[in-house]
Every structure is written in C-alpha cells, then in structure tokens.
Design a protein around this nucleic acid. Structure first.
Lengths: 212, 212
DNA sequence: GTTCCCGTTGACCGCGCGGTCAACGGCGGC
DNA sequence: GCCGCCGTTGACCGCGCGGTCAACGGGAAC
C-alpha cells in the first residue's frame, strides 16, 4: 500500500473515535454516553475501543486536548501576523467558530470537563487558560493602540468565548447558515462592540473616561 | 404558623432540592450526579428525594422549567414597559445574568436537556423558544425604530444568550466581580454592538467603567 | 506455505446506579 | 393521652455501566 493516506492507520482510527465520542458526549454528556454506544456508532464493539485508548476518561481528555491545540495554533498564527488587533480578533473569532462547527472534535471546548480526574483536568485547564490569555492580550493591545474601548478584558473575553462555545449547542448542519456566515456575523458583532470609534467613518476621538 | 414564610414547607423543600440538584448537574452532568450525592448534600438520604419528585428526570425537568419561568417573567415585564428597545435589551440581559448566577442554582438554562425524554423535552424547548423569540422581537423592534443596526436577529440573539448561559461555567461567587457588575458589563457590550449610532456617552446610565 | 502480529471479538466481572418499599417516629388535632 | 399522618430511613433489587481478557483470523513478510 502506498503511503497516500499520510496518516498511519492507527492514528486515523483514533481520530475517528474522537469525532464520534465528542459528538456523543455533546449529546448525552460524558457519563450519559456509553462506550458501547460510541463503539457501535463506529461499527465496532466496545472492547476494541480499549486498543486505542486506555479508558473512557482518556477519550474525553484527548477530545479536549486536540481541539485546544487547534485553537492555540490559530491563536499563534493570528498573533504572529502583522494585522491590526481588530483584524486579529475578527480572524480568531472566525476560526474558532469554524473549528467549533466543522472540527467535530472541535466542539470539545464546550464539553464538560468536570468529569476529568485532577491531573488531566489540570492539563486541560492550563491550555484553556493559555488560549483565554491570548484572547485578552489581543483586547489589551487594541485598547493600548486606541482602536478598542477600554473594557475589562477578562469579562469581555469570556463573553465572546461563551458565545462561540455555545454555538455547539444550537448549530445544525442542516440549517440555513453556513459555518463561515456564523463566524462572520459573530466577528462583526463582537468587534463592533469594542471599537472606540464607529466603523464607517468619523474619527470621533473617543471620550476620555476614568471614573471609579 | 403565621404565614410569614408564605411558602408551604413542602414547597420549600422542593426548591432546596432543585437548587442542590441543579448545582450538582452543572458540576457533573445529569448522569454524572447521583441521587445519593444530591440527597447527601441536603443532609438526607436518597429515598427521601422520591417523596418530592417522581424520579430523577422530573428533577432535571423542574430545574429547567422553573428557571425558564423566571426568564419568561422577566421578558414579559420588560416588554410591557414603555422603555426604548435598547433599554429593554439592557435590562433583560442584566436580569438574565443575575438569575443565572443567583437564581435557582440558576443556571438551569445551561444544563443539558438532551437527557430529558421527548415529552418533557418538548415542553422545555417550547418555553426556551418563547424566550428566544422575545429576545429577537426586541432586536427587531429596535431595528424598526432605527436605533439598532439591521442584523440577523436569530444569530445575534443566540450570540447574546450563549454568552449569558456560559456565565454559569465560569462565574465563581468567591471571585472579584459582583453579579450585577457582570450583568452591567454584558449589557453594555452587547447593546453597544447593536447601536446604529455611537452611544454619545449620555444615556443617563449610572455606569462605572474603567478597571482599577 | 508458514509465521507472526495486530485489530477485533464477545463472554465475563464487580460495582454503583436509579428506583422501591415496609417500617418507624415525632408532632398536631382532638 | 391517644391517634393518624407525613417525612424519613435503610435494606433491597435488577440493570447496564466501564473495564478485562483469552481466543481468533487474515494479511504482510519472508
């Protein structure tokens, strides 16, 4: 056989399992989705899952870990670019939305992680925190340049991320909107709420605020 | 006796159970939280739960149902008021955030409902849809008046609601922010992204912005 | 043709789950 | 002072879960 696939057989199987499992976890929750059910959706039996993952928890962990890696890669690329902060933010939001929808495993960020044992939980949280920190960094950079209003980056980052992660709860592939359209709408809305001056024109030199 | 408490004993017990259960469901998921664990957090034994609710599913259903009723009541009050749409939206967001945090272990709207059986699920979805419809109505009304930009009300409503529901995932009472501050920050941000003309800083709101 | 290995199976295990129920006890009504 | 009732218990049940393992089979390597 030629190395066309590029991904070793075993690795492709692991990925298929993660996709299926993530989807089941999202539908029924970690404890609600049985290993039998996941296996059967893949056309195999439960025992076989354990040749690819040590246990169920490792599957949940891998879901989170992979999708967080995807997100972190997006973040890195966007930050390395020379785009203005508002454009960086727009792009990051777009990509996050698309990973959330297309990268089926992607929606892992919306899964419960309360069910992970402390060591694995710590690793997931560390990556999630790194991602959130990047988000806040972009907000702060934009504020420093004067293109964004000065907001609390923590709360606003969580607001934006919450919206995006929630997409996994309502988006349906059969629906009328393409993933990219959702991403565009979100990016537009969230960036607009941050801009110091109205987008169309007018350098309305924002007010100097500083109470409290 | 003196009707001071106003709520019959039994009803108060039911409410306590719902609070505790909602919190457990949020932490571990519906299937991950055992009835023994919920009962023990209330200082009782599992069997006793079944004197207040027929089964575990009824508990989850009641969580959703009550918090949706709260939200719908908010919506009704806000819509009946004569406030401008942007002020209605601001208030609705504030109240939703606060119910989410303070309310019935509040965050029921953020719980999985995939575990409900079809008949109960339908009832929950009906109420949720009614609430979302109200949200969209306010957006459309604002657009009709020219105070809001013309956006897709569906997507934007889901964006806002996602953010708010996500609060249940990260808000900690021990944290630095008061619930009302989160609500204010959200209301401000989400309304600003919708306004057709820049805020102009004079809406008589007693907001305090700026971080330390 | 023979060997070996890896992906796969299905029978099996113990556990903790959701849910049931007979018994009980303390308090309010009389 | 007695009765009846409601809230509460804890022993109990069957089930389906996550996880294990001996056995097997078919394709690649030689």
């Amino acid at each position: 056989m030629a190395a066309a696939g590029a991904a070793p057989r075993r690795e492709r199987m692991r990925e298929a399992i993660l996709r299926t499992a993530a989807s089941a976890f999202r539908r029924s929750g970690f404890h609600g989705a049985s290993t039998r059910e996941i296996a059967s959706a893949l056309g195999m039996t439960k025992g076989n899952l354990y040749h690819y993952f040590r246990d169920k928890e490792q599957i949940l962990f891998a879901c989170h870990d992979r999708s967080l890696d995807l997100m972190l890669r997006s973040l890195e690329e966007v930050e390395r670019s020379s785009l203005a902060p508002e454009e960086q933010l727009r792009q990051l939001i777009r990509r996050h939305v698309e990973v959330m929808i297309d990268g089926l495993g992607g929606s892992a960020m919306a899964l419960e992680f309360g069910s992970l044992s402390p060591p694995l939980l710590r690793r997931v949280i560390a990556k999630r925190d790194a991602y959130e920190a990047g988000f806040r960094r972009i907000l702060s950079r934009g504020a420093a340049r004067g293109s964004f209003r000065r907001v609390d980056p923590k709360v606003i980052a969580l607001a934006i991320l919450g919206s995006i992660n929630w997409v996994a709860r309502w988006y349906r592939l059969e629906g009328p909107m393409r993933p990219a359209e959702v991403g565009e709408a979100f990016a537009d809305y969230f960036v607009r709420g941050l801009l110091a001056s109205p987008p169309a024109e007018g350098h309305g030199r924002a007010d100097r605020r500083g109470r409290r």
